[in-house]
Design a protein around this nucleic acid. Structure first.
Lengths: 238, 238
DNA sequence: GGCTGTTCGTGATGCCCATCACACATCGGG
DNA sequence: CCCGATGTGTGATGGGCATCACGAACAGCC
């Protein structure tokens, strides 16, 4: 099957490649089948806003392919990105469950596919399948912890360099030293990184220069190499 | 009944004065009676830490009288207060439900009474009374929204004066203008206010001076009078 | 009432980083 | 392949606020 934007469409949750890994993706067979019936699939171009901060919740989106950024903005245009969502993530869950306005805007960062589940259908589904309701509660609690992590970063981490180091560390799963450097594709612009750590584009630029000079990281095209994770950790715990 | 610290003890949830207003306090008769059996009441002196950030959750505390501050700290001693809890509030709910470490420390700001409910007993109680489990989910979702409010304040509100104005507004329920000024007892130290808005004690001092000079507020002993709420709102939306 | 510890007001100093400005690189579509 | 749009590097500047420092005011307590 071929879709616009040159993507493959996954129209059946039963054979979804991320099915095993996430909420809504690792359920009993009957539950997945039911889920498959109530969802509606669509492919969204880059920059689509799946929902906007302050809107009444219509339902949730399950991201199948692509990435989306979640952010909240102030009236004067300042923005903070609170999360980069990837395939398997469920967007808009808290607002939909509690029937309060979406607390963030969700915008596609690249074309991708998402399943929409309307609020009414979701609530009915949760009533039918108690196992899933439990999973939802767990997910909400996980979201809460993530939010608190953000509060700590914003409130307790004073300097941009510290926050920047923290962000880089969160991208580096392995050792990240000279023997075992972390390689990763850098998909964010400096502007977006700035919005993640609450500073300006220029400062991020300068931080990159600085960290490169100090041999903490290296940049090859769009590939970021983390060379000295221990030093980054030292910056964070300063 | 008399207790230490000159407080009256409320040892029966059925006649608790805040029973009508809050979670766990407005339930069916049988549920309140069961709750009354599983709780254990105690009076805590000022500065008691009911639980500490990072501890494994033992259970929840329902605050009956007194006030408590919830805060999180970094290793280098910096602190942010995320909430001032009052009578009726349930503390440690999220950690207890999800069995993750307490995300904050809860410290009594004045002597007061609290009911402790152990984790196991609480979970059993929630299983017995589905109505209450629902209330808990709602409360968790409310907590999540509050956390996001905090993220917005910390991340999008740049200047201390803006955050300070925001805090004052959150304390002013009525008109707060020359005709109908808000009077309130100021129970926090400048240090604590600083920890609420992420700045220093000195800056709070200077902000008070500044706002007094601009006729926005007035201070009579420990009574704070908000005289020009519209002007405060203007500062926030600048 | 005096003594000790906490809280508060305010000056001086300096630095970090937001802001402005502008040139260069890079990307993507017709 | 070119050209507009978007992203990036870096200098100059200045203001806001953290930090240090100290004395005054205040509260609690034998």
């Amino acid at each position: 099957m071929r879709a616009p934007y040159g993507l493959n469409i996954i129209d059946n949750c039963l054979i979804c490649p991320v099915r095993e890994e996430h909420l809504f993706c690792n359920l009993s067979l009957p539950a997945v089948q039911r889920l498959n019936e109530i969802k509606s699939t669509a492919v969204y171009p880059k920059s689509t806003m799946l929902f906007i901060e302050g809107q009444q919740p219509r339902g949730v989106f399950v991201l199948c392919t692509g990435k989306a950024k979640l952010f909240t903005s102030s009236s004067d245009g300042k923005t903070i990105i609170t999360k980069i969502s990837e395939a398997g993530d469920v967007l808009g869950l808290n607002a939909t469950i509690s029937n309060r306005p979406y607390e963030v805007t969700a915008e596609m960062m690249e074309p991708g596919q998402a399943n929409f589940i309307a609020r009414d259908a979701l609530l009915q589904f949760l009533r039918e399948y108690g196992e899933v309701a439990l999973r939802v509660a767990e997910q909400l609690s996980r979201n809460y912890y993530t939010a608190y992590e953000e509060i700590r970063t914003l409130g307790l981490t004073s300097s941009p360099s510290e926050k920047f180091a923290k962000l880089l560390l969160s991208w580096s799963p392995n050792a990240g030293n000279a023997n075992d450097p972390t390689h990763l594709k850098l998909t964010l612009t400096h502007e977006e990184i700035a919005e993640m750590i609450g500073t300006t584009r220029e400062t991020v630029s300068r931080l990159f220069s600085d960290f490169k000079k100090k041999q903490l990281v290296q940049l090859k095209g769009s590939t970021l190499i983390i060379r000295n994770k221990p030093a980054l950790e030292k910056i964070v715990n300063s």
